[in-house]
Design a protein around this nucleic acid. Structure first.
Lengths: 339, 339
DNA sequence: CGCAGGGACTTAACCGGAAAAGTCGGTGCC
DNA sequence: GGCACCGACTTTTCCGGTTAAGTCCCTGCG
């Protein structure tokens, strides 16, 4: 089937291509009657202006890019990205922007993708996830002048716009809550150490533990997978001075940790309290349900998308603080059993 | 920063635009020496041909579309889609095709998106998920002549290409396994009843139960969420003749079901055996680990993508059967406790 | 010696829109 | 009455590629 072009509309309306273009774009230069006629014909034959032709003339591709740099298996089990994407999507499709997705192997590949997208004018801007310390992508994007919004921070975003959440405050709140319950030996199973937000959380953990006079603030690095979360938990629980509470950097690891505790004969929350970062429905499906640090991730994505559209529209790059994760206590936390 | 165009390359190489085009596309018409010189200059100034200009001349957008019609929360927790996407991506990016993603509210919106994508020449083809009985999308895609691959079936795909997995056989295998263990009262918590593969599974369930002389093959419809899975499980387990085994249409509902069983004081697998369809790492993180029907979902996505590229390339639409899900027995299934 | 043939390019036309510049009939105004 | 101005279009140019159709020079051959 042949796709209708602007010339088809023009022919049927008995006017020139230019007139059709003006009519469709709400520009002056055509009478109201003619405009209505043209619009009716366009709708009738199902005309949609070619993105290619339009972006060749104008400058926008009406698409934004998102490159995800995580192994396939991590992407699957972590609800985070899919929720983020659906939030981004909601915002974009309301303005009929498309989302171009690409899964990449590493930062090198991601930078290459950005350069290509920019050169091909395939996207008008990009969303950047998983910020790292001294992130290579930031200077590249600045150099290219490709509009971008970093999802993460604070700090390390250079001159790029960003949306961030105060992980530090959320962590402090969690530790204070556990201490209020009576815990003194608190450990943490962290996410990928290379990620900036992991670093921020680790640093905040060290600080708050020192301030509250707790023993060493151990963070066992991990990679967000259940296996690694389980391994890290085994290590922690086998130690002579095993912790009475563990904070996990995502829900999958927390569930794995719960499983390990039960397998080692420890009662949760009696012998061990567990807190999960990121509150997905999964946290409520296990026994006991997990106390979790939740926030509205689709909204987070929507805010990032909205800001990106603003930057594309010419707004100056700003740093927007999003909601801080809040603690939802459930069955997995309690005062430590005194023996 | 100004993006380099083919004219910039031509100027620096001291040749015409045409020569550069021939050189870059491996066409005859330039000497080997000139070709190398042009290639070197293009690489040096970071030239990437504009997608828009290229697809305006040629015909391809070098992108495929995927519209997902599920509420945001379901999308997030179900690993299925993200795994599928990463598989699709792997195949596409190897051929430097982009994936355009759109989350839509309903089939109506999805059809509109297809029409728009087609009219805008934004994509060269689409992947269709969540096939329904008498699916509206199939005739529309056929009418438009937009290359498409349906992920699902068999049946209901009209003249479109498809990739499918024999859910019927997988379900029969599962029931036979449970019966071999000694179960006689088997129930099922199904996915969205409107989806064709739910229908196929339900029909297969009825058939195999009849064949094996089992009691009524009850399928409680659900929507893939943990809450609904829990509710359905409560209903089943409260019945006078409660089942000794339940098959769940996804892993999230199975985990919710496990949780409900434990909360009702039933031992798994002693009092109740549980089987989950779709084997994600989550199934191994709970206690007991869940017996699951697994298959390689990224590969499934990759096959679909490969077939779509073939259809775009002009191959006739074929129906490819993918791997059948296979049962991985774990701790959640055992012979029913005899009392 | 003259001419066909072919390699190596250049020129120009096109793809489908957007938008600047031009055309033309009608009006208001001095 | 003549002229500037305006609305409503049409014509033309441009965006950055691809590609058919030249152009030009060199070689081989009768």
């Amino acid at each position: 089937m042949k796709r209708p072009t602007i010339a088809d509309v023009a022919r049927r309306a008995g006017v020139s291509k230019g007139a059709v273009s003006y009519a469709l774009n709400g520009q002056p230069g055509v009478s109201e009657a003619t405009r209505r006629r043209i619009l009716a014909i366009a709708a009738e034959i199902g005309f949609n202006p070619s993105r290619a032709a339009r972006s060749l003339s104008g400058a926008t591709a009406d698409a934004v890019g998102l490159a995800l740099c995580r192994p396939a298996r991590t992407l699957g089990i972590e609800p985070f990205f899919m929720e983020l994407i659906s939030g981004v999507e909601a915002e974009l499709s309301a303005r009929s922007y498309a989302l171009t997705l690409q899964v990449v192997a590493d930062q090198e590949a991601e930078v290459t993708v950005y350069r290509r997208w920019w050169g091909e004018r395939r996207v008008d801007g990009v969303l950047v996830c998983d910020l790292r310390a001294d992130d290579r992508r930031v200077p590249v994007l600045e150099e290219l002048g490709l509009p971008a919004v970093v999802i993460g921070g604070p700090g390390g975003t250079g001159g790029l716009a960003s949306v961030w959440s105060d992980d530090s405050a959320a962590l402090v709140e969690t530790v204070e809550y556990l201490v209020a319950l009576g815990h003194r030996r608190i450990a943490r199973v962290g996410g990928l150490p290379a990620l900036l937000h992991t670093e921020i959380r680790t640093e905040a953990f060290v600080q708050v533990c020192r301030r509250l006079g707790l023993a060493d603030a151990v963070t066992v690095p991990s990679d967000y997978t259940g296996e690694e979360g389980a391994r890290a938990t085994r290590r922690l629980l086998s130690s002579a001075t095993r912790p009475t509470a563990v904070i996990y950097d995502n829900d999958v690891m927390a569930i794995a940790g719960l499983s390990v505790a039960q397998e080692m004969g420890l009662a949760v929350p009696g012998d061990l309290s567990i807190v999960a970062w990121d509150d997905s429905p999964l946290c409520q499906l296990v026994h006991p349900p997990l106390t979790a640090l939740g926030r509205d991730i689709p909204a987070y994505g929507a805010h990032a998308a909205r800001q990106l559209l603003a930057v594309i529209g010419g707004s100056p790059a700003s740093r927007v603080q999003d909601e801080t994760a809040h603690l939802t206590p459930r069955g997995s936390t309690a005062p430590p059993r005194t023996n």
